[in-house]
Design a protein around this nucleic acid. Sequence first.
DNA 1: GACCAGGCACATC
DNA 2: GATGTGCATGGT
Length: 216
Amino acid sequence: MKNTKEILYSIYQCLYDRYGPQLWWPAEDPFEVMVGAILTQNTNWKNVERAINNLKEANLLDPYKIQKMKSQKLASLIRPAGYFNVKAGRLKAFVQYFISHYSASVEAMKGEKTEVLRENLLNVKGIGPETADSILLYALEHPVFVIDAYTKRILSRHKILDGSHNYEAYQQLFHESLPLDTELFNEYHALIVRVGKEHCRTKQVCNGCPLSIFLP
DNA sequence: GACCAGGCACATC
DNA sequence: GATGTGCATGGT
């Protein structure tokens, strides 16, 4: 194995061979993806599904309805996703942006330049780099690589990039090493989460991890 | 009971 | 600029 580029390709191949396509994002439409991206912050996806189902069953999974709804009401509906008071505020802030800039049109938002979108999203209170990039990639199909805790952990454990680097440094590595391909980035991040859940928790050491062949 | 989950904002040093 | 803390549910 020579350079980072080859290693990142090989890791992807290894994960894809092992797990197959992950079919992300598990949501019915782009707005649901955006809501899910905010709700899943530091939270198990199962709990997010419960929260989203509550919104659906109440027929309130809609930007304008969320904008109008009382924060307390929203918080009670998304309760299973945890941090419900914080996340209620974040959802409110996001739909405000979505409505005021794009009249709640996914197509209008999609057409915006990636850099502009990312900067705008980061200015919404409660949306950080991972949430912004998840929205860009999984809801709007822009080719940006999503970095999460597993990505950092796996790359640092494999001595590809040590943990002292920030989000953008990790992202840059993927952007420089791979073609800017929405499908590839979609699958790659999902596969990292998949292998991370099984083999790369904080207090667990690479137990049976298929990526152990890449250890230095 | 400890640990964990598809983070982020804010305070403090 | 680095480090610490609050936010909170539900599963293992």
